[in-house]
């Protein structure tokens, strides 16, 4: 009991901030990537649907799919940037 109180007493504000930083980075990546992952999956699925239906349109579909995924990925990238900033800058 004494020991535990001792450890708690040793924890400074900076330690709490560091812990919160890492935790926040992990949460940012975990939650932030869900949306973009699902979105990209939907885009790929529909593009594949279209390709299966019209194989001659494959080139245009692939190009549009990559473009759409890139834009969908934006939110994921934002969360990645926030995580990087949390880890290395803050």
């Amino acid at each position: 009991m004494e020991e535990a109180q001792n450890i708690v007493g040793q924890i400074s504000g900076a330690d709490i901030a560091t812990a919160a930083k890492y935790l926040a980075a992990g949460f940012v990546m975990a939650i932030g990537s869900i949306g973009s992952a699902i979105g990209e999956g939907i885009v790929a699925a529909h593009a594949l649907d279209g390709m299966a239906r019209q194989p001659e349109m494959e080139g245009a579909l692939l190009r549009t799919m990559v473009l759409g995924q890139a834009i969908t990925e934006s939110t994921g990238i934002y969360s990645l940037v926030v995580a990087i900033v949390l880890l290395f800058v803050v």
Partner: peptide, 13 residues
């Protein structure tokens, strides 16, 4: 911003 951070984030990550 998203244009640059996308490339940066992917490569850096």
């Amino acid at each position: 911003i998203s244009h640059s951070f996308r490339l940066f984030g992917n490569t850096f990550g």
